[in-house]
Amino acid sequence: MIEVKNINKSFGEKQILKDVSISFIRGKINLIIGASGSGKSVLTKCIVGLHEVDSGNVSYDGREFGGMNFSQRKEVRKEIGMLFQGSALFDSLTVEENVRFPLEMYTKKSDAEILERVNFCLNRVQLDNVNHLYPAELSGGMQKRVGIARAIALNPKYLFCDEPNSGLDPQTGIVIDNLIKEITHEYNITTIVITHDMNSVMETGENITFIYKGEKWWQGNKEEILKEDNKELCDFVYASKIMRKFREV
């Protein structure tokens, strides 16, 4: 469980996050939804400490992140896996070396054991025979899968995914969504997924937080979201015709 309490974040004069408090539940997909530029990525980066918050606190299963020193934070970070919006694979390394990276950095395993783990992770995301390709040689969907494989290499307790299916065709997007869902339930991970894709909201929404202009506007699950009357939320959810039809039914 990750608890975010009253965090504020500004860049210069511009306040991006306003007093956001959210709880993310273990073993569930916790969704953060909202329009582009509403501050979703900044929020996740504040949670994992890539941005320093101006005020407020984040705690990982009771461990307060804000008060930690560098090496304590490092211990927590080893338990975090993150899939970035653009995959963020190291483009000078092959697929295998990408997944190897965290294992070589932090485990004292032998080469054979590391390779076994790498192949296990790649297998888990249904990628075979791509070990020696470079990220630039892969399709967007495959890059995302390598990103997931790298994120789960160290058996994380917490998994963050920033728009995992953006830039993918709907079918591949669903494959990625399902993969994240399976992995979350299989390993009982606290997973946080950012998305603005209503498809995946309706597929995976167990605990949904709607961010509007840097504020937490609404929280609930996918059944509740359809009954909601809040104007800003409805504007977001029913932006597409198909969702409006869905509501009428």
């Binding site: 980066k45 994992v48 890539l50 934070r73 490092k74 211990e75 970070r77 080893k78 975090i80 993150m82 970035f84 919006q85 653009g86 963020a88 694979l89 190291f90 483009d91 990276f101 965290p102 950095m105 932090y106």
Partner: peptide
């Protein structure tokens, strides 16, 4: 610079590197 804007540096940091 490319590593920065494609979030590869963030990816390193998140691994605690």
């Amino acid at each position: 610079g490319t590593m920065r804007i494609t979030e590869q540096i963030d990816a390193l940091e998140i691994m605690g590197v």
